[in-house]
Design a binder for these strands. Structure first.
Lengths: 359, 359
DNA sequence: TTGAAAGCGTTACCAT
DNA sequence: ATGGTAACGCTTTCAA
């Protein structure tokens, strides 16, 4: 039925040359007479020949394919990271094999095995939830890996991440400056390194200010809206004195907003809410979220760039990359009265009046 | 440095059998003595051997990999579709090669060529912006394709889509019933078949109601928030009588909400706004969006299922799938006074009080 | 400048 | 039940 796929031999035959010469014409490699090359390329075009990347990969030991592992592609944070990674990969002539780890370490390991079997040239691993131990065992056999939002003690493992600690520090300071005294932290998945670092920034800000940190006010939660809702509800119920919620990400923060509404707590009058990431949603809910903006696409793009540099054998200047998040002050946690006119007042107005959607 | 990758010959040697037997053990295929198999599998495990899928694909002409092409992976609609597709693919033992067409027909063709070269077993092509002509030319040479949100006259090309016409019809009727008389349509990309079908539903509802359709009230726009903003602003300025905006998708609708705010038009009092898709955002903006909910993950999952059925040679029951969207009435376009207590009144309250985020 | 042969790692096919 | 050989489609290496 379907005629057999045209291969390099067919092209060679049609051009009256050897397969070798066709290969040279295609890869612009080795000496070849220009007119021969042009003739061959014309035939390639006419026959609609596409080199089989499997065969090519088998011999070159390179697939021009990268693996990308994310905890949840439907999470806006990771779809932005993915977009950035895809663009950078595409620009460099690489394809992207996407794996959704589903917030599950088992699935994550599975994904890494699959990528190994597929012989991807390198892997971008986002927000890994694996233990450091599992990690080191795996890395030994995997192709080159670059981590996103996670670091590892493992030798030459490079990473790209946002400065979680600085972000949480900045946000917590902001809350303290605006007069909040009992700040709870919705910490995200315990296995998340980002969550752990944010916890440190949060603690640091508290001790700076001489505020006694109550361990009961740091509560783990899944990185989704629903979990933010239930966790915030629980915190606000058990600790009525809480007047601010620092959230693992914007989805959790939106859930927290809804919990406040459900409990009749006004935001920001009774409770201030701060998110993390500044996804599109953040500026559009009511009240708009104060949050830490991170360059999500940049994270993905930078990870791919680092990966490609490592693949190119560039060992020297491949440093870890730490991107600084930017505090975006909106109505869910405004500046206190004393800072109103100075630091963030004007910004706030700008940030939620303008149409946005592509940050 | 890095020891050579272990291959099937190494395993065979270690087990004292032929490569053939190792292959049989691995694929559970052909006759093999159970104890031999177990012994081999133990060695496989011990050596950490992973079959090279390239080599396997080269000989079997199957890669266990599907291609997914989307216009924009950062668009929440498509990241949900992707999530559904990835899950279905993973469950069936397939990997997913992701291509972002970037809302650009040229990139789309490029992506299809890449997938062809990668010898994916099949392709899920979402919301293609290609002309029917380009399309037919390409399809002839591509591996099996299933379309999402697009249909084609091309022979055996199957598709999965939402019923755009029915959705737009339903939404427009809803607006008319609630007393709106001058309804504009922000139509999305002209090349979008979904947009075209929605235009038909919109027109049909207008003629049903005997409302004269003004062609100037159907305006193309990019499927993003910013474009919704500028397009709505333009419409509302040029046609002050407009009292409702039917939008291509929820992002456009949110932009339209912002335009209304900027122009001092109250929603829904002065202008009603309706979106499409019911992405997470839709229920969380102010006012919450009335919209047509589509099963985004289901779309992706169903497309993969259809694709796999076709690959399995199942030609008979592979029908096109058309999913019905569901009108979700929220405050941006409430029911009119006369329908308040009957149809949608109670629903509305439910839809924006509950925490949501995983629809 | 071009071609022939070998080999990448696996499975299919036919022997044994 | 197991093994040998060829083949998948390409690039690398060497020879002409």
């Amino acid at each position: 039925m379907m005629s057999k796929r045209v291969n390099i031999a067919d092209v060679a035959h049609a051009a009256g040359v050897s397969a070798q010469t066709v290969s040279r014409a295609l890869n612009n490699k080795g000496e070849i007479r220009p007119e021969t090359r042009d003739r061959i390329l014309a035939i390639v075009d006419h026959l609609g020949y596409r080199p089989n990347t499997l065969a090519r990969g088998l011999v070159t030991q390179k697939t021009a394919t990268l693996g990308l592992v994310v905890p949840d592609i439907a999470n806006p944070f990771f779809s932005e990271v993915t977009r950035g990674a895809e663009e950078a990969a595409h620009r460099a002539g690489y394809s992207l094999l996407l794996c959704n780890a589903h917030e599950d370490p088992v699935r994550e390991v599975e994904a890494l095995y699959t990528l190994e079997a597929q012989r991807v040239d390198g892997i971008v691993l986002c927000s890994s939830r694996l233990s450091e131990e599992t990690f080191c065992t795996l890395m030994a056999r995997l192709p080159t890996v670059v981590l996103v939002n996670r670091e590892s003690s493992e030798g030459d493992l490079k990473s790209v991440r946002v400065d979680d600690e600085a972000g949480a520090l900045c946000a917590t300071r902001h809350l303290l400056r605006s007069g909040r005294r009992s700040i709870a932290f919705l910490a995200g998945p315990p296995a998340s390194q980002g969550g752990q670092r944010r916890a440190q920034g949060y603690q640091l800000a508290l001790s700076e200010a001489g505020v006694p940190g109550d361990p009961a006010l740091t509560v783990a939660c899944a990185p989704q809206l629903e979990s933010g809702y239930s966790t915030a509800q629980q915190i606000l119920t058990n600790h009525p004195e809480v007047d601010a919620l620092l959230c693992y990400n914007d989805l959790v923060a939106v859930g927290a907003l809804q919990a406040c509404a459900a409990l009749g707590r006004r935001v920001p009058e009774d409770v201030a809410v701060v998110g993390f990431d500044d996804i599109l949603l953040a500026g559009l809910v009511t009240p708009p979220l104060t949050t830490l903006r991170s360059d999500k696409r940049g994270l993905g793009a930078e990870a791919v760039r680092l990966l490609l540099r490592k693949l190119a054998g560039c060992t020297d200047d491949c440093e870890n990359v730490v991107l600084q998040p930017e505090l975006i002050v909106r109505a869910s946690a405004p500046a206190g009265p004393e800072q109103e006119e100075t630091l963030h007042g004007p910004l706030e107005a700008i940030h939620h009046r303008r149409p946005r959607g592509d940050n």
